[in-house]
Structures are given as structure tokens and as C-alpha cells.
Amino acid sequence: MSDDELTLYPWRKKVKTLPESFKDPIENIIRVGHVPKLVVTREKVRETLGINRKPPTAYKHEDAREELEKLVKDTDLYDKATWSDRDDKTEDEG
């Protein structure tokens, strides 16, 4: 949220800690380039429909995902969405 939007929507709060429900989609965006992962069954459906098995997006182009990751690393979102939190949590729970 930009500072301009804070003026427009004064009840909104800046996100300091990423809500748990945001972590999976943001992790997917950084690691895949998109929110949903493309599963093999859907790739097969695409093929039967006569369209490319992999869409011509970051699903197909790893370099595109890498570029997105670089841009996100320029912000604090990358740290907020860090999966090391989750690893620590898993170890604690374990």
C-alpha cells in the first residue's frame, strides 16, 4: 500500500507482518511466477485442447520467474514472505 492510499483509505493499516494466508500465494508467485502451480493433469488437459502444454508465461520460462524474484528482492516483501520462518516452525513442532 502506498502512502497515497493511506490518505484515501485512512482505516487501512500498513502490513507489517504478512498474514499467514498470504504466505502460500506469495511463495508461489516468487517460486513459480504465478499463484497456482501448473499440475501435470492440467498440462495434459491443455494438450488435449490443442493449446501448448505449458503456457508461454513464467510456467514455461524459468528466466521470467528469476526476474520477478529479483524485483521482489528489491523490496521487503521477500523477507516478509521468507520461508525460513516456516522451517523454524516445523522444527519447533517436530
Binding site: 502506498s2 492510499e5 498470504f22 499463484v35 508461454p56 520460462h61 520477478l68
Partner: peptide, 18 residues
């Protein structure tokens, strides 16, 4: 070719505008 998530406004814009 190489387009990514737009990114999704309900999540990414709220989490980090930049």
C-alpha cells in the same frame, strides 16, 4: 512470452505496494 502473475492485487498490492 515470460509474463508472470500480474501480480494479484488482493495480496501483493496490500502486502507491498512497491
Amino acid at each position: 512470452e515470460g509474463a508472470t502473475c500480474c501480480p494479484v492485487p488482493e495480496i501483493v498490492r496490500l502486502a507491498n505496494h512497491d
